[in-house]
Nucleic acid binder design. Sequence first.
DNA 1: TGTTAGCACTCAAACAGTTAGAGTGCTAAC
DNA 2: GTTAGCACTCTAACTGTTTGAGTGCTAACA
Lengths: 368, 368
Amino acid sequence: MDYTDLNERKLQILQAIIADFISTGEPVGSRSLSKSHDMGISPATIRNEMSDLEDMGYLTHPHTSAGRVPSDKAYRLYVDELMTTSELPEADKLKIRSKLLESRNELDSTIEHAAELLSDMTNLTSFVLAPRKDESKLKYIHFLPVDESTVVLMIVAEDGQVMNRAIRLNEPYTEENLELMSKVMTHNYMGKSISTVMAMDIIDDFTRDMASLSGLAADVVPSFMKTLEKMLNADLYMNGYSNIFSLPEFAGDMQKTQSFLRMLEDKNRLTDVIVNRENGVMITIGDENSEDMKDLSLITADYKVNGKLVGRLGVIGPTRMKYGKVTSVIKYISDNISQTFELRDKNIKELESKEETIDERGNEEADG
Amino acid sequence: MDYTDLNERKLQILQAIIADFISTGEPVGSRSLSKSHDMGISPATIRNEMSDLEDMGYLTHPHTSAGRVPSDKAYRLYVDELMTTSELPEADKLKIRSKLLESRNELDSTIEHAAELLSDMTNLTSFVLAPRKDESKLKYIHFLPVDESTVVLMIVAEDGQVMNRAIRLNEPYTEENLELMSKVMTHNYMGKSISTVMAMDIIDDFTRDMASLSGLAADVVPSFMKTLEKMLNADLYMNGYSNIFSLPEFAGDMQKTQSFLRMLEDKNRLTDVIVNRENGVMITIGDENSEDMKDLSLITADYKVNGKLVGRLGVIGPTRMKYGKVTSVIKYISDNISQTFELRDKNIKELESKEETIDERGNEEADG
DNA sequence: TGTTAGCACTCAAACAGTTAGAGTGCTAAC
DNA sequence: GTTAGCACTCTAACTGTTTGAGTGCTAACA
């Protein structure tokens, strides 16, 4: 977008207003602005500029005698043009690195840790979407006996995702049945993406390749489909629900707090929103979001495992948030998740030549 | 406990006060009490009795000129002696049955549904603790290859619980290695309870039975232990966080709401509390709980799968709750989970013929 | 012409005073 | 033992007032 309608001074004033408002949460007035940011012009002049900025839609006015508040448009400008994304302090970086490395052998806990870090460091509500699997390919399908009427279905994807589900059967089965099903289904679906398989006619495959098992199909197929669906609807880890209580915009407003929490409780909806975002770092502000989030901002970023985009993480909070700081944190964390999981491959090569020892020193790597 | 210190009339008055307070949330005064419950004595007499009840610790007084509020002791008496647990209306029963049957082939979703039902019908925050596995026995241990440096560890227990975890290895492996590990570990640990295995010296077993794999042990053993631990720390599903916003005791009190939600966010702590409760229906009121829940009440019950106690569900909310109604709902749901999973073996046919009618009617009112 | 000082005006928030209502505790009479 | 009556208490709701931060406008100034 083009912001040539704003001259240098207007930009400067707008930036000052946004900065002040972000840090205090109070509408900022001309007088206090001219005091705090010593910019060599009088409050009256600032007022004139503010008035112009309001006409242009960058500022609003809660009521006649209140200070100015940045509009969503102003935040957009700020994020695109004015914001300074400062480097994260070394202490924060260290904290992130060490916490992520702590669990680097376990994908799931890494993801949980990432959510914790994110909400702790931004003081907002964070979420991490575990691997996106639309295009991940199936590798095994396996049925395991549990008791006479229960089996476990296990699906393994090439990217390491495993999902299982207990299925209660209404018909008896034999171990041979399970073996056969496992083999045939693995053969039929391996190497195919989840969405491809979901579009196939599984029942048809059953009757063609495992006619003797058509009785089991009735029990197994729906669960199989649901499990695939669940693999697509990746888990959403959330953290820091109650952080909003420390924000002044929610402090007095039970209504607002309630609707925020209600919105967060609808995980399917939220997952949907998150899944459908653009890749890379994406910031959406206020009314750029859907109706039920029009007072909120979302910042998301992706992380990779082995160079492939697999998951997404981010925060949600009021439009008044420290965009610069938050963006830095999110970027650093997502890069670090990716790195944590990429290092490994290189490391192993190194390891193989050097043999041993890295394991003990494991904690200090990922430097630089 | 013995409540012989209370004569008939005191009991009657106390019951009336508790009933009124539970339904309105407002302190109840002598005058309004004598009006609403026509008990043939004057407000003055009631006042005298109230004063006695206060001396005995059954009532408290927010301030001089306010009505009386039941103390935790009063609720305890109410729950033990006075409460009437009415039968659940048929509509509610139907709703519960049909929703649980909907997912009867999948243990996990049944549990989720139970939590949803519970919070919907009590308007409180509900939780369901998935199967308790302290004593469940291991059945298989299996390692699956994913890529050159990742394997999936899968542990299956006799009760059908499956847990898996991706492990990243710092050493290369071969499929034969995995086979061997799977076989030996299954052989060593099958039929043993999780806690027994956790107490064993796994590393030692490795060096004895799979000396050639001692290199892998360093990567595998910690993850194996953690996975067992995770199997013990059963998942806690929660539902209805935001229900408390509709309760007057929280409505004006941000502080209280915040601390409630913060408490709920500490899932480990909460799981601990729930795990350590007594079997059967257990109600704990106010200061009978630990310090951080001293303004709250908990009601829990257990559910069974195949006749064995496996999980626990319940609600948490202010001490002012509809103990009778809530208890009925919890009981009905827990019995129904147990039944859903037991019925199966007996006469599935019978169930299926009934199920059709329930299913149809269930769908009408499902998901608004 | 852009900048500034001054001034009238506005509004929310904080404060103080008042009233109404619901309640208590005590006492004396029934 | 029960009750009516009464003085007293406290909160919640309401009123009016003040204060302070802010605006918009106008007229003077560089």
